Amino acid sequence: MGSKLNHFFFVAFRVWKYRWLSDCSRISGQPKLFHPLLLKGKGKISFGKNVQIGVTNSPNYYSHYTYLEARNSDSEIVIGDNVSINNGFSAVAFSKLTIQNDVLIGVNCAIIDNDGHQLDPNQRNEGDPKSAAVFISENVFLGDNVSILKGVTIGKNAVIGNGSLVTKDIPENAIAAGNPAKVIRNL
């Protein structure tokens, strides 16, 4: 009985609450939710088949949520088939963010396709900051605590090591790690 109550109060209720708090209305597809998911913005967010959000036996299961924001009406987040996203993931798209099929994403990863604010101090609170699309190719594995910045393409089958900050493109079949991430060897 206790397990069912725990699941209701600490999982099912939170999943419902974040669904209710979501304001993005241009959603297609239905991910499997094991973790709360907040969908924000005026753009489009699409999920392929067999997308999993959250992992039960992983850090931050009871305390965090997944955040996806397609900020503007022409912004888009596209998540392919068979993608598994661990707890505490966030992605913000001002232009476009694509995650192709069979991608694994670790705990506390973040992807942002923009600068967040204008870099010029006199314009910091005005207008849209610069953005550039992010593209994650199929069968990529992102370790825990990986951050990916605007304009990055990660090639097919690449592995990004824990704690990496990806600021430049990573070729296919490469293992990259560090801050900033650099290719350390090929598969």
Score class of each variant (00 low, 15 high):
Phe89Thr: 14
Phe89Asn: 14
Phe89Val: 15
Ser90Arg: 15
Ser90Ala: 15
Val92Ile: 15
Ala93Ser: 14
Ala93Lys: 05
Phe94Asp: 13
Phe94Gln: 15
Phe94Thr: 13
Ser95Ile: 12
Ser95Gln: 14
Ser95Arg: 14
Ser95Gly: 06
Leu97Ala: 13
Leu97Met: 14
Leu97Glu: 01
Thr98Pro: 00
Thr98Cys: 04
Thr98Val: 15
Thr98Arg: 13
Thr98Ala: 01
Ile99Glu: 00
Ile99Lys: 12
Asn101Arg: 13
Asn101Trp: 11
Asn101Ser: 15
Asn101Pro: 03
Asn101Ala: 13
Asp102Met: 07
Val103Thr: 11
Val103Lys: 04
Val103Asn: 09
Leu104Gly: 14
Leu104Cys: 10
Ile105Pro: 01
Ile105Val: 15
Ile105His: 11
Ile105Met: 09
Gly106Leu: 14
Gly106Phe: 07
Gly106Cys: 11
Gly106Ile: 13
Val107Ile: 15
Val107Ser: 05
Asn108Cys: 12
Asn108Thr: 09
Cys109Arg: 06
Ala110Tyr: 01
Ala110Leu: 06
Ala110Ser: 15
Ala110Ile: 02
Ile111Val: 13
Ile112Glu: 05
Asp113Phe: 10
Asp113Glu: 05
Asp113Tyr: 10
Asp113Pro: 02
Asn114Ala: 07
Asn114Pro: 01
Asp115Gln: 09
Asp115Arg: 10
Gly116Met: 09
His117Pro: 02
His117Ser: 04
His117Ile: 09
His117Asp: 02
Gln118Phe: 05
Gln118Trp: 05
Gln118Pro: 01
Leu119Ala: 06
Asp120Ser: 11
Asp120Pro: 03
Asp120Thr: 08
Pro121Tyr: 11
Pro121Asn: 08
Asn122Leu: 13
Asn122Glu: 14
Gln123Ala: 12
Arg124Pro: 01
Asn125Tyr: 13
Asn125His: 11
Glu126Leu: 14
Glu126Gly: 02
Glu126Asp: 08
Glu126His: 09
Gly127Leu: 08
Gly127Pro: 03
Gly127Ala: 10
Gly127Arg: 09
Asp128Thr: 11
Asp128Ile: 09
Pro129Gln: 09
Pro129Glu: 03
Pro129Lys: 07
Pro129Ile: 10
Lys130Thr: 08
Lys130Leu: 12
Ser131Leu: 04
Ser131Lys: 07
Ser131Trp: 01
Ala132Pro: 00
Ala132Asn: 07
Ala132Asp: 01
Ala132Gln: 08
Ala133Asp: 00
Ala133Gln: 10
Val134Trp: 02
Val134Asp: 00
Phe135Val: 11
Phe135Glu: 06
Ile136Asn: 01
Ile136Trp: 05
Ile136Arg: 06
Ser137Tyr: 04
Ser137Cys: 11
Glu138Pro: 00
Glu138Thr: 04
Asn139Arg: 15
Asn139Pro: 02
Asn139Cys: 08
Val140Ile: 07
Val140Ser: 06
Gly143Ser: 02
Gly143Cys: 03
Gly143Trp: 01
Asp144Tyr: 05
Asn145Trp: 03
Asn145Thr: 03
Asn145Ile: 03
Val146Leu: 04
Ser147Glu: 02
Ser147Ala: 11
Ser147Gly: 04
Ser147Thr: 12
Ser147Asn: 04
Ser147Phe: 10
Ile148Gln: 00
Ile148Arg: 03
Ile148Cys: 02
Leu149Ala: 04
Leu149Phe: 10
